[in-house]
């Protein structure tokens, strides 16, 4: 029911507004719901608002976990 797109914060202007890069396209995004975000951070954006900080390292980690799990179960089955 809700599109959420990951983007990276390019710059922060006053009034809790940031410019966020999505695959090379930029749009102004409000940080009112995630004021702790800083330049360089990844965040999930929905209807022009940053909703959640994202941790690319964590994404990488869970991805590797899935990979390892599938490897292991593949060998045992």
């Amino acid at each position: 029911m809700c599109l959420g797109i990951p983007g990276q914060i390019v710059s922060i202007t006053e009034n809790q507004l940031a410019v966020v890069d999505f695959n090379g396209v930029r749009r102004e995004v409000s940080l009112m719901l995630c004021p702790e975000l800083a330049v360089g951070d990844y965040c999930l954006v929905h209807v022009g608002f940053a909703m959640q900080r994202l941790e690319p390292e964590e994404a990488q980690e869970t991805m590797e976990l899935l990979d390892e799990f599938l490897e292991a179960s593949g060998e045992s089955s």
Partner: peptide, 12 residues
């Protein structure tokens, strides 16, 4: 192109 994909993601 990644920019086109970016806009498509943003606008659905």
């Amino acid at each position: 192109r990644k920019e086109v994909k970016g806009v498509c993601d943003l606008l659905g």
